[in-house]
Amino acid sequence: MPKLTLNNKSYHCESDETVLDALLANNVDIAYGCKQGGCQSCLIRSPNQTPPDEAQNGLKQTQKAQNYFLACMCKPVEDMALEEIGAEGSFIDSTVVSLKALNPDTLELIVEYKGELTFRPGQFINLKREDGLLRSYSIANLPSTEKRLEFHIRKLPNGGFSEWVHDHLSIGDTVSLQEPTGNCFYISGEPEQPLLLIGTGTGLAPLAGILHDALEQGHTGPIHLFHGSRNNEGLYWVDEMEALAGKKENFNYSPCLSGPDVPQGYTAGRAHLEALKALPKLNGWRVFLCGHPEMVKDAQKKAYLAGASLKDIYTDAFTVSTAES
């Protein structure tokens, strides 16, 4: 009889019983809905077991890669550790090794972490200030032996956390980090699939991580990046991305400005609208959308209507905490 472990408690699962039924039989408070693999309310993950195929039907590739599955569709044959999605993980310490301005409002923060951390470029991570204030930021770099994480932090008006990073954080200071989360990252396996990356502001952080990850893993299909802001000061890495586009034949870069002042070499208009204008047919494309929540939502709908499958659209909306808006 397989044993299930959740939050340090163990439960027996009868043969032919689903994970969901076993947990409910033990009065575990767990979300569920249709009980037939449709509504995805009972989504859960296993840190140690690859779930059976039928329990991952309909999930995104990036969720499958993290062992997410539907509890109502999983009949375990071996012992299985379980973890609720969005459960608070433990913190590890990191040290600030670099702080650099990317543009007048945005800092590149690089930290070196101690211990072990598994992450995918494009995922986000909670950073914690000494007094407990938490904010999540996306990871812009690839994993390496240096154990570094790179974040892009825009200073928000009255933004408690971002102001602290901009005005008070120094090299050598300690910042606590939580386990990385999120489904917006690159998965290998379909190297010829065309990729569309659309971001506003520091949406470039996850997209740069995804872009470099795709190139590193030998992606051969076309990759189009549209990075937008109102004015030129809101963008960054324009020269770097142009240089990369010159070097990599399958990479195309379009900096977009929605304000009135549009210098030569830039596209006039909002990034997602210009992207959809340039690429009106997205059947078979994989799409990544990061940044302003309104842009992400509108672009998700437009990309879907343009033919992209919903499962192939990965989103990361940067919602600003209400106290900081």
Binding site: C34, G38, Q40, L310
Partner: peptide, 22 residues
Amino acid sequence: DMEKQAAKQKAFMTMAFGGPNN
């Protein structure tokens, strides 16, 4: 939420097709 909505539509469609549903 488009993804939640698509999941709900799958449940609806399964029902409309006379398939197993709750």
